[in-house]
Design a binder for these strands. Structure first.
Length: 586
RNA sequence: GCCCUGGUAGCUCAGCUGGAUAGAGCAACCGCCUCCUAAGCGGUAGGUCGCAGGUUCAAAUCCUGCCCAGGGCACCA
């Protein structure tokens, strides 16, 4: 509908240009907005105000000329000029009810663009290191990313959901070593656990399983393991030096093959847990992309070679550096350390080149806000490689700070002190958690109060929206209990009977859904949908309280049922995009 | 020091590609169940949109400076 108004205005502007009232080269973006006040009609345009300066005429004069030049349309009942020169459009009754017909006709497709009509997009999100279970911080990325993917898909884009698995690198070695040490404990060795090891209970769990399956096969005496290691932090040494030495010791004693077995055991167990956890949260992926594969198939070397060939690398202090500063980064960055190891950044360059090579129109990365300083160097690497960095869109999500009542909860994967996503799901439920996460815009710090989220009270907005849906379902149950049927055709033929204020408001809300999906997808802002659904639910509840739907007048009854059914449809579609269920009863 | 993000009602937040009297939830107060689920609805009260300039017919929204709060500035991932 908004588009139709837009087209009408566009026609009028062209007409005025032909008539010489507007300069030939006038460029003005035609804006059509929903009005806040019904007295201003259904839609308003500020076009005359925008044209006033280039046309050097008074806004109201231009408005009058525009209105006179508007092409005929059955959708518009009348047009008014108001205030400084706004053009207000009042829809015809027939056009105003179109959303109800559309929602019932198009059902699960209502408001959603033709699948595949948009771009091919790759969205990478969560991608937490598989060094432990997901915690509530990751939950936000999962909820946001999952909802964003659904939203983009609803807007017609072909979305590829991807999780980047950091299955290489030092942190994973530390995890493998931590597991091995706990395994040794389980086999009766008495070891001193390193300060910088992973201390979570899940590490013991993996170790216990390993002890059960492999017995003493991987066992070495504690004295041998700990012999001649540099001191740990608690003993006045450095925890990093200590843990690195311990990792080397682990590797050396086990041998590469056995070490790899422990490593993969840890990786697979944690990754399975993550996969299962996310699936339970309603988030699934098309691809789990292995970082290790980039090294083993030579992609990392190729990526570096590509930069090398373009003269973007240089050697200094024994390390190899990338000239990221010439492409907007603060300083140059190391891609290969003096010990020969490639950096995380080097594999990330290869990964992003790989993503672009796969032919996506748009690459969206969802990162924690603490990685923001990382954006310029990745873009720099793409540009320096001759790729189009403009196709990469990095979205930063602020951390969620967890509270239990007024008590702030500290979280650290290393120390093993954190609330897991699984615990959150168990405690507050997937629906409430996902809605809660996605209500806030991502760049806002999120205070996640566990007590509030799990309270099954009115304070919890997810129930408010779900309840609106359940109530409508209940109305239809009541209808059949009374032995009545909904004659949809008769209802649609009598939509003009829906003439009270509440009904108008609800029709309008239903009609906003398609443009909301479009706008929210463009802005990559699922929270807009959450807020919209709240408003829609409010319109439903208000209507419900003010009017009986199941009335004796069959024509009116059927019309009202068409309206609430259209609202039910939108609630279901919209909640689906957010990954929240639409229960039939509560 | 530099960079990013916030600063809007008592609290938690929308609104920010500039538009007509600044919105919602919670908390407070007053009403509404012989009636399709009261997990609901209506109403009242509550605001120097951090501060100061600037651009504009029009600024919470754009620009500049400043003040607060959080985060980031690795040959870690």
């Amino acid at each position: 509908m908004k588009n139709q108004i837009h087209d009408l205005l566009h026609g009028a502007v062209q007409q005025l240009t032909r008539d010489g009232l507007l300069p030939e080269d006038t460029q003005v973006a035609i804006q059509v907005d929903r009005t806040k006040d019904k007295a201003h009609g259904d839609f308003a345009a500020n076009t005359a105000l925008m044209l006033a300066k280039p046309a050097r005429r008074k806004p109201r004069e231009i408005a009058e000329a525009l209105v006179a030049a508007l092409p005929e349309s059955t959708a518009v009942d009348r047009v008014e000029i108001a205030g400084p020169g706004f053009i207000n459009f009042f829809l015809s009754r027939d056009a105003a009810f179109q959303p109800v017909r559309d929602a019932l006709d198009q059902a699960e497709h209502y408001g959603h663009a033709e699948p595949g009509s948009g771009q091919r997009m790759l969205v990478e999100f969560v991608s937490a290191n598989p060094t432990g279970p997901l915690h509530v911080g990751h939950g936000r990325g999962a909820a946001f990313g999952g909802a964003l993917c659904n939203l983009l898909a609803a807007a017609g884009h072909r979305v590829h959901r991807e999780y980047y698995v950091n299955d290489a690198g030092r942190q994973m070695d530390i995890l493998a070593t931590s597991v091995w040490l706990r395994y040794l404990e389980a086999r009766g060795e008495s070891i001193r656990f390193p300060d910088n090891g992973y201390r979570g209970d899940y590490v013991r769990g993996i170790a216990t399983a390993l002890a059960a399956s492999d017995g003493d096969r991987l066992r070495h005496p504690a004295a041998t393991v700990m012999a001649d290691l540099p001191a740990d932090a608690a003993d006045g040494g450095d925890k990093e030096t200590h843990i690195d030495a311990l990792v080397d010791r682990c590797r050396g004693l086990l041998g590469e093959e056995a070490y790899r077995q422990v490593f993969d055991r840890a990786l697979d167990t944690v990754l399975d847990d993550i996969r299962d956890d996310l699936a339970g949260f309603g988030v699934t992926y098309d691809e789990w992309f292995s970082e290790r594969s980039l090294t083993s198939n030579g992609a990392v070397d190729q990526g570096l070679q590509r930069l090398q060939d373009r003269g973007e690398l240089y050697e200094q202090d024994g390390a190899i550096w990338f000239r990221s500063s010439t492409y907007g980064d603060e300083k140059d960055r190391v891609v290969r350390r003096d010990n020969g190891a490639i950096t995380y950044f080097a594999s990330d360059i290869a990964y992003h080149l790989n993503k672009l090579d796969r032919g996506f129109d748009q690459i969206i990365d969802i990162w924690g806000a603490d990685h923001h300083g990382y954006v310029p160097r990745v873009k720099a690497a793409l540009t320096a490689s001759g790729a189009d960095a403009g196709r990469l869109d990095v979205r930063l999500v602020q951390f969620a700070i967890l509270y239990r009542g007024s008590e702030r909860m500290q979280m650290s994967t290393r120390s093993g002190q954190f609330v897991t996503l699984r615990e959150l799901r168990d405690e507050v439920g997937t629906d409430a958690a996902r809605f809660f996460y996605v209500m806030r815009k991502p760049e806002q710090h999120l205070d996640f109060d566990l007590e509030l989220a799990k309270s099954r009270s009115a304070e919890n907005p997810v129930y408010y929206v779900q309840y609106a849906h359940a109530r409508i379902c209940s109305v239809f149950r009541q209808l059949s209990e009374k032995g009545l049927q909904h004659d949809e055709a008769q209802g649609l033929a009598n939509l003009e009977r829906l003439d009270n204020e509440r009904e108008q408001a609800l029709v309008t809300a239903v009609g906003q859904y398609p443009e909301l999906i479009r706008t929210a997808a463009l802005a990559r802002e699922p929270h807009q949908l959450a807020h919209y659904l709240r408003e829609l639910a409010n319109a439903v509840h208000t209507y419900y309280n003010a009017h009986q739907f199941i009335v004796d007048d069959a024509a009116l009854r059927d019309a009202r049922l068409c309206l609430v059914a259209s609202a039910q449809r939108v609630l279901r579609n919209g909640l689906g995009v957010l990954g929240v269920s639409a229960p039939e009863a509560m």
